[in-house]
Design a protein around this nucleic acid. Structure first.
Lengths: 241, 241
DNA sequence: CAGTGGTCTAGACCACCTC
DNA sequence: AGGTGGTCTAGACCACTGA
């Protein structure tokens, strides 16, 4: 009868152990985790099995291997990871450093849509943050960001203004929340007055609307944002496999 | 001294052998390749080494494993692969089958841009194809597709009109060209008269412009297309990892 | 049942980094 | 020199498929 075989290979159980250890921050972002040999001993399995578990975590961008040095917890504070999820590129392919400029921030209660996507009760506290991303000093992205209030308690615009680096690096450092993966939904829309002003374009200019839902460990959604991208000399880059 | 160590592990050499075998169509799309044991014997390596080579080809979507049955060459003619590279989804998440409707097709000489992206000489023959994608009978995507003329010789609109299935399935079946990966560049633009008419929207409606460069084996570009997507009730879906 | 991919082990050795 | 990840092997056994 249609029962689920529920066969769980050993390396997946090891992976789950590593995942929960990461989740409770047994090793800090940027730090090395124990060596494969050491983990194999700790869990009572062979090194090859630990290796296969780590393989999957590396494929999911939670860990990075460095030959001869060790395996490290990925951190958004690593300069190479600063804008890891930002797919905006110049049309000529040149790389431009982005700068985040906070605009305003307030607290509110979750409406129907926010409560649904963030999987929190309606009326639960949310933090709403608006900011602009500048590329070579041109404002190109206007973001409106919704955060669950209980995870981001006493979020302060002042602390953010002093921050050098990406927003996710800030979240990781200050709130211990590591963004692990995200889903984006893109549409073309006409700029309203607010977006037009923030981005220095005329009203009704076509903008790329990028709706992003970001997850931390174990598929828990912890950020929802709407981004309005001005794509005159820039584009959103994507690879399909 | 900055010399390249150029250490090539055995399994990568095996992978390369498999790749060239795939490229010269030693095994047809949809067919099984020899078993891991058999390949190990043929190449004189252990099964684990063959396995690791296949692992990478599976990760690149060139092969699929089916436990107990074998390892198969991925085919765009597999119904589950029909619109593998199409990221358009309904806003409510429901799955809608797309239908391709060819409009017109003509031959031309490669201009500066086409020659650059397709890596062919300027003036080399290209086939230009325009078609519309319909979702539940609504035209939602207008595609203008550039193909290198030497690869797609005697491309005929008549044969395409009779075809049931995706364009890439057609290319694979008729021309032996398998699309392996693609890069997309997205912008928001205003609909011109032609796009507006084809998609049944008013002129200057914001559209998603999706420029796609598609590659076959060994990173050889074989298709360039510009797609205009009407994203009123639909969106382009993307996962970031 | 035989044949396939999938897992797990133990051990040897290689490439790379740091001291 | 010693530690780390990376490769390769050989063999045993498990899970799944289809005749």
């Amino acid at each position: 009868m249609g029962h689920t075989p529920s066969f769980h290979p050993l390396y997946r159980q090891i992976k789950e152990l590593l995942l929960t250890a990461l989740q409770r921050r047994e090793w800090q972002p940027g730090e090395a985790i124990p060596s494969e040999q050491e983990l194999a001993q700790r869990f009572g399995v062979s090194q090859g099995t630990v290796r296969k578990a780590i393989d999957e975590l590396v494929a999911e961008n939670l860990l990075v291997r460095k030959q001869g040095k060790g395996t490290f917890v990925v951190s958004h504070n690593d300069p190479r990871q600063f804008y890891r999820f930002l797919r905006l590129r110049r049309d000529d392919g040149e790389w431009i450093q982005a700068t985040s400029v906070p605009i305003d921030c307030w607290r509110a209660k979750a409406g129907q849509e926010a409560s649904k996507v963030l999987q929190i009760p309606q009326g639960a506290p949310v933090v709403i943050l608006r900011r602009v991303l500048r590329f070579s000093n041109k404002p190109l992205v206007l973001d409106e960001i919704y955060l669950p209030g209980d995870v981001f308690e006493d979020f302060s615009l002042d602390a953010l203004r002093e921050w050098r680096g990406s927003l996710y690096a800030f979240f990781e450092q200050r709130f211990g929340v590591r963004m692990v993966r995200a889903e984006e939904r893109l549409k073309a829309v006409a700029a309203d007055r607010i977006a037009a002003e923030a981005l220095g374009v005329t009203e009704r200019t076509p903008l790329l609307l990028v709706e992003r839902l970001t997850y931390t460990y174990h598929d828990r959604p912890v950020e929802w944002r709407k981004g309005y991208y001005a794509t005159l000399e820039y584009h959103y880059f994507n690879e399909l496999t």
